[in-house]
Each structure stands twice: as structure tokens, then as C-alpha cells.
Nucleic acid binder design. Structure first.
Lengths: 158, 158
DNA sequence: GCACAATTGACAGCATGCTGCCAATATGGC
DNA sequence: GCCATATTGGCAGCATGCTGTCAATTGTGC
């Protein structure tokens, strides 16, 4: 069953879009299952990853920008992580209100554990592709997103 | 700002995963904005697309399988589309309970209109990539998903 | 220094994905 | 034919994304 000219919905980009949706869903489901034993979810794990990436120098707003999400989406997750004792807040010398989000020791341990669980899955998933091909694919996705967002911006101003 | 060895989270697949998340989010936001004037959302538009793809020969459960989503996720959208008068139900000769989901004439008009709005955006987004490259990228994503899901399956049984 | 814009977080509410549980309807083994 | 199983839809509830609005803080232009 291939999707040919069955409907007016037949653009070469559509197959890619559908595959992005499917892969996104599969990644979230897999991640949820993977880190559930640690009391995490995909979303909380991702936020921990962003905090690790910034080494505790980011406010919630910066985290959200880096992840491409709305501030409030990240804010709620961070608040829940704080309630669970996995992250905390440090005073920000540059901004009294925008505190810096840092991992607690417990948060660090959980994040390291999640990373260990993920590595073999990532190896197996990416193993079939040459590193070059993997990078090329990533670059192509980024380029597609760049042009999509340009379109969205232009479209709203015209 | 590149993400080097700042944390234990440093696998070549991670850049791709993050880009899939970002592109997925960008596509949904763009789609929501695009079809909002038609009274649609990304999710409803996608379900209409699946119905069009099956030409009205699919039950809700089949639609969900095709989209890689849980049945209930699709069920709610279909119910809402039915309430909005965009889809209807035909009796299924093979199953009294599992009715076939079909577009109403109004649903068809809305879907065609959405497709017209999407085409120039898709052209602009994919335009920077050769058709070959676009297909290759799509295939790579599908391959990654296949291996990811295999891992998930094996992992649960071992 | 002061008013105005931009940034940030708090709170409330919606859309869409998920799961779990139950009832109704096939389907298959006996 | 009958009972166990699978499939399907209905209902309820949760997680995570979004938006809009408001207050607190910071930065800018005069």
C-alpha cells in the first residue's frame, strides 16, 4: 500500500512530514518507557538534559528558548522537578526574579542513570547509518525547519 | 555554542533526536496557524488526511494504526470532527460496531482548501533540498524508527 | 530620574497525546 | 452451538504542549 495520487494531498514533503511525526512519537514513547523506572518522563528527562547542557547557568526562559518550547511549558516541568527534589534554584546575580535552574546531587545521579540506559538504545538506533549520513540527515532536518519557520514568519507579515 | 563533552549526554544520535523534536514542534505550530482560518487544527487536519488516504474505507481503529497513534487519541478527534459536520459514519458490512469514517461534502471542501494552503509552504520548505536528498532523508528517518521500535520490543521481552 | 518597552515568572484554561477499565461485537477452538 | 479471546468503541483521568493575562523586574530613551 503506497500513497499515490489518491487525494490532492500528494507532495514530496508529505512523506517526510509524516515520518517526522511517527519518529517523534516513537522517541517519546520509547523515552517514557526507558526512564519510567527512574521516576522520570521523556519531557522531564529532556529538561534535565538542557540543564546539564547549560551547566546550571540558565534560567527557565533560556532553557525554553534553547529547547524551542514556550516558556510556560518548561516552567511547569521545572517546578515539578523542583518539587521532586531533582532540581533547585540559585540566585541570579544578573536578575533578581529569573533564578538559575541547577540540578541537585540527586538530580545529577538520576540524569546519569538515564544516560546510561539510553546509550545502548541510541547505538542500536543509529548503528545502521554511517556517521556521515546521520549528520547529513540531522543537517537536512535543521535546514527544513529553518525554511519552514521563515515561511511562517513571512506569511504572518504579508 | 556547540554541545561538546559538557555532560555524559553526548551521543551522535542526540543531535538528530533534538532536531526531530524541534521540527515536529515547528510543523505542528505552523500547521495550527495555517488551518486555523478553516476551523481546523494540525491534529484534525492529519486525521482528515488519513481518512482521505483510506477513501472512507477505514474504521477509527484502522486510522489509528495507520497514523501510529493510540485508538482513543484518534477516536476523540473523529468524534469532534463528526460534531463539526466534517466527517460522518457509514455502516460497516463486516463489523456492526466499527463503523467506517467518511468525509462529508463539507469536510472534503475544507480538506481541499487546507491542501491548497499547505502546498506553497511545502514547496518553500522542501525547495532547498534535491528530491533525491529529501527522499533519502525520509528513508533514513524511517530506518531509525524501525530500529528504535525493534529495540523497544526486544528490551521489553528480555 | 522617570516613563515605557521587554523580559520573566505565576496562574488559569485549552488541545492532544497517553493509559486503564468496561461493554459490545467479532472470531476461533472445542 | 458455546465459551474464551481479540477487537472495537465509550468514559474517565493524566502528562505535556499551547495561549492569554497579569505582576515583578530589568533595561532604554528622553
Amino acid at each position: 500500500m503506497t500513497d499515490d495520487a489518491r487525494s490532492p494531498f500528494d507532495h514530496p514533503a508529505n512523506a517526510l512530514v509524516l515520518e517526522v511525526f511517527r519518529l517523534n512519537g516513537a522517541l517519546i514513547r520509547c523515552g517514557d518507557a526507558l526512564v519510567k523506572p527512574l521516576g522520570l518522563t521523556s519531557a522531564r528527562w529532556q529538561v534535565l538534559g538542557s540543564i546539564a547542557h547549560g551547566r546550571g547557568t540558565f534560567s527557565v526562559a533560556r532553557l525554553a528558548d534553547n529547547m524551542g518550547l514556550a516558556r510556560q511549558s518548561v516552567q511547569r516541568i521545572v517546578d515539578e522537578l523542583a518539587e521532586a527534589g531533582l532540581v533547585g534554584f540559585e540566585p541570579n546575580p544578573a536578575h533578581k526574579r529569573a533564578k538559575l535552574v541547577v540540578m541537585t546531587p540527586r538530580g545529577q545521579r538520576v540524569f546519569v542513570r538515564a544516560t546510561e540506559l539510553w546509550r545502548p538504545i541510541a547505538d542500536a538506533m543509529a548503528g545502521g547509518l554511517a556517521l556521515r549520513e546521520l549528520r547529513k540527515t540531522t543537517d537536512n532536518l535543521a535546514a527544513l525547519r529553518g525554511r519552514l519557520e521563515d515561511q511562517a514568519d513571512n506569511g504572518s507579515s504579508e
